[in-house]
């Protein structure tokens, strides 16, 4: 075996050390946390010691102080057209390999419906941005985190793809990039970063829009105005007014996750007994067609 001379050893050690200290970073997190990871461990140390990070990109969106985002979905208005789902997919550069997209629309039936009478209800399900999010609790690297404005975010640079968050999420809201995600360049939204293979992704409440004061893309796309998005801390906001009614309920509330998506429906429809994903379910990985 060839022995290394001192010069070669120093060179090799330098490369190895450089790789450890500045690992190549591919994904852009699209959040306030991304810039701390651009310099690897050095960035973490500098940020920890000084609170300063020189690589913070201009225009990285900070959470708006005093805001807590929430969404209300009126199931009596939802017609199951799935425009929200398709619009979300386009807006967030969700590749076709990710199936179902961030929003799954189910066809459901209520348990307390009058027997013999079929009460179909369409119900979109996505990340609930829980206050006590099980996915955030279990994430080993802190890649999943709760922003002050209530959005559960993922720092794609920190995600190691262990999928602990996916088994922890009671709403099956997270998707994994099983293959290299491909979205044609012409179809890409430049405001949303492309994720890498091997990382988890999900609904971000369209952080690139909502932190600029806009609403989410799914709200815009809904033809029947079933969705409402807004600031829960503002008593005059539309969402605050809507949840003052007794029609609201939250998905799997018994788990005390503190969902920030509220469903509105008539009392008889509050308990859903089955959820059949609307087509095309045969594309869902892991589901027998």
């Amino acid at each position: 075996m060839k022995k290394l001379n001192r010069r070669e050893f120093v060179k090799l050690a330098g490369i190895a050390g450089g790789y450890v200290l500045w690992p190549p970073k591919s994904g852009l997190a699209g959040s306030e946390a991304l810039w701390s990871s651009k310099l690897g461990i050095v960035g973490d140390i500098i940020e920890g010691a000084t609170g300063f990070n020189p690589t913070k990109p201009e225009g990285a969106l900070e959470p708006i102080p005093g805001v807590k985002f929430a969404m209300v979905i009126d199931l009596d208005k939802c017609i199951g057209c799935r425009r929200c789902s398709y619009a979300c997919k386009r807006e967030n550069n969700v590749p076709d390999a990710i199936s179902p997209p961030y929003i799954t629309v189910f066809e459901t039936e209520s348990v307390t419906g009058v027997s013999g009478i079929y009460h179909p209800t369409e119900m979109p399900v996505q990340c609930n941005h829980c206050d006590d999010a099980p996915c955030v609790q279990v994430c080993p690297t802190g890649a999943s985190y709760k922003s002050p404005d209530g959005i559960v975010m993922i720092d794609y640079d920190k995600c190691i793809g262990c999928r602990y968050c996916m088994v922890a999420c009671p709403y099956q809201a997270r998707r994994f990039n099983w293959f290299h995600p491909e979205v044609p360049y012409k179809d890409r939204n430049p405001l949303v970063p492309m994720r890498e293979e091997g990382v988890v992704e999900k609904c971000t409440f369209c952080v690139h829009r909502t932190r600029k004061g806009k609403t989410t893309r799914c709200v815009e796309a809904c033809p029947n105005k079933a969705r409402t998005f807004g600031n829960l801390n503002d008593p005059d906001s539309e969402v605050s007014k809507l949840i003052k009614s007794e029609r609201w309920w939250r998905l799997k509330d018994e788990l005390n996750t503190g969902c920030n998506i509220y469903y509105l429906t008539r009392h008889s429809k509050k308990n859903m007994v089955w959820y059949k994903p609307l087509p095309p379910p045969q594309n869902i990985r892991g589901l027998r067609s």
Partner: peptide, 15 residues
Amino acid sequence: IEGVGITGSSDLVPW
């Protein structure tokens, strides 16, 4: 080369 997708895991059975 091919990706984690060639394992049998899925979004429904992540582990």
